[in-house]
Write a protein that binds this DNA or RNA. Structure first.
Lengths: 136, 136
DNA sequence: CTTGACCCTATAGTTGCTACAGGGTGTAGA
DNA sequence: TCTACACCCTGTAGCAACTATAGGGTCAAG
């Protein structure tokens, strides 16, 4: 399989595949006589893994760690669970943040419909406590 | 107020304050005879605004836009509401994404507690459909 | 009078890609 | 056979939004 085929099979850009190789996430494949990269199913599997983990919000370092663990099938699953659990906690806190945010923004938008910026609650709310305008 | 004081008052790093000045988000303050930046309450207000907006998930361009609008108190509030409404929609979709993610991760973690990586659901789930190990 | 905490500028590094620039390869049509 | 075109190669520069480093200046306290 050539790089373009691998890329489209995993919804990845060609440049990203080469980038993953450069940073050591994807092993260098064999080359054809024309120096083209030639991939097999192992590469497809590994790249799919990487892309799925990335979509789940893991950073490249976490992906590297997951791959390292996944490559040693005798390790206890709990090590992988630990990484995933940390990620869940992160996600929970992000969700909480976003909900607070949403509530704040929603209240601001519904509180002013015809006013001018001078009395806009959005602006007031973003200014520091006790202040009423940015140029105070 | 010196830069360090301003920074700690707004939970910002000193370098970030200087960075905001460099990209034109924060107006250049007066300087002392020793060429130190000297900030007043207007700067504190503006930086608080920026940090709060950033924490609310606005990108620097959106912050710039909000500041521009906030600086002209006669504009209709609806222009700011529009920006906020778009942001609310973005937040809703981010929350939905994160919830999906959380559910997936949670199911994986609760499905395997004592197994080894070889049969770990996390690894299987990350691998492409139909495959059972990365080096297939 | 020197130590230490602060300040200054300018530049390079970070993460995770993405986009050139400047070339080579391989196949299909005129 | 020529040539147009899609694909491949390497290497480097750019994006957001900072963060860190190098190499210096300033100032109050001991």
């Amino acid at each position: 399989m050539m790089i373009g085929e691998l890329a489209s099979a995993t919804a990845t850009k060609v440049e990203t595949v080469r980038y993953y190789e450069k940073i050591g996430l994807l092993p260098p494949p064999a080359r054809t006589s024309a120096n083209y990269r030639s991939y097999g199913n192992a590469h497809l599997g590994r790249l799919s893994f990487i892309r799925r983990a990335r979509n789940l919000g893991f950073g490249l370092d976490a992906v590297r760690e997951l791959l390292r663990l996944a490559d040693e099938p005798d390790r206890p699953c709990s090590q992988i669970d630990n990484i995933a659990s940390v990620k869940i906690a992160e996600i929970d806190s992000k969700i909480a943040d976003l909900k607070r945010l949403r509530k704040e923004l929603y209240e601001l938008v519904s509180a002013c419909e015809t006013d001018t910026v001078g009395s806009c609650r959005v602006v007031e709310a973003l200014a520091p406590r006790g202040s009423h305008h940015l140029s105070d």
